[in-house]
Design a protein around this nucleic acid. Structure first.
Length: 283
DNA sequence: CGGCAGGGAGGCC
DNA sequence: GGCCTCCCTGCC
């Protein structure tokens, strides 16, 4: 296995905080089958050990290991609750997942809980995705846009996608037709990327923010799901003048936390879901 | 078993 | 813009 030395990094927090569906726990590490091959990754102290089925992969880029994490944490550390959230997961990084798998997995996530999301994503991989052999096992990865675009939504529904099937089919078709250009989305501003993603049928504010943050690297994106909504309402007051407008809430969060609002979102999300002291309704 | 999920579209004003 | 209703299906 190849090695990378890391500091102030925690693989478990990074891959299990809820931001990615591309890395799945396996043995002592994690498997990613959505990068055109298999990547296996584990952490031992300050060393990341990784292996692949074909060629090398850029783990530093995929885990954003070069982010100026001290500077990021300092810049968003604006209050006691955020301070506790950061301390809870000091080694967490925002991931840089591959674009199409990230888009599809977050389209799958609409109005589903995490176990249901993982179930349906795995069924998509197994039914339409490429298979890879690695260390004596067979793994299935997310299919290419061209493949999904050819599967009618009625057939996509057979794996439990419900009305999301049409979203996924149409998103894949738009990408095949070149209506969405990944390189442009990366190069342009957050606002422009977010607006362009929303032009896809089925992609609204929240999914557009997830893709902007977890794949495209727009670190000011602040995805607001029901969990973030709850924690902001109970611990902060910058949603009081926004009404129910996602755009206004999102802007208010960016004004409060700054250009690394996406990191703030992820610390808050992870901490609030794993700390029952303030949240007695869920585990 | 019934209710409900990590939203979004389309219709209405 | 803001508000309302409907939407599949699997988990809890």
């Amino acid at each position: 296995m190849r090695e990378i030395t890391v500091k102030e990094f925690n693989l478990k927090d990074t891959l299990e905080c809820g931001q990615t569906f591309c890395w799945n726990k396996h043995d002592n590490g994690y498997i990613n089958a959505d990068v055109g091959q298999i990547a296996y990754l584990e952490q031992q102290g300050n060393t990341l050990l990784y292996d692949t089925s074909e060629s090398d992969v850029d783990i530093v880029r995929m885990l954003r290991l070069n982010d100026p994490i001290d500077q990021i944490q300092t810049s968003i550390d604006k209050d006691e609750f955020m301070h506790a959230s950061i301390q809870f997961a000091l080694g967490l990084r925002i991931v840089a997942d591959p674009f199409f798998p990230c888009l599809i997995t977050f389209l799958c996530s609409i109005q589903k809980n995490i176990p249901a999301i993982q179930t349906v994503i795995q069924k998509i991989r197994k039914r339409w995705g490429p298979s890879y052999e690695f260390r004596g096992h067979v793994y299935y990865g997310m299919p290419e846009p061209e493949t999904i675009a050819k599967v009618p939504s009625s057939e996509l529904r057979e794996v439990g996608l419900g009305w999301r099937a049409d979203f996924i089919n149409r998103a894949a078709q738009a990408i095949v037709k070149g209506e969405i250009d990944e390189a442009y989305l990366r190069r342009t501003s957050y606002e422009e990327a977010h607006a362009t993603l929303k032009s896809l049928h089925g992609v609204g504010d929240k999914v557009a923010d997830c893709v902007s943050l977890f794949s495209l690297g727009h670190l000011e994106a602040f995805p607001i799901d029901t969990w973030i909504e709850r924690v902001i309402q109970s611990k902060y007051n910058f949603f009081t003048d926004t009404g129910n407008s996602y755009a206004k809430k999102s802007r208010a969060a960016r004004e409060y936390f700054g250009r690394y609002a996406g990191y703030a979102q992820e610390y808050l999300y992870y901490y609030s879901r794993n700390n029952q002291q303030w949240n007695t309704t869920r585990s």
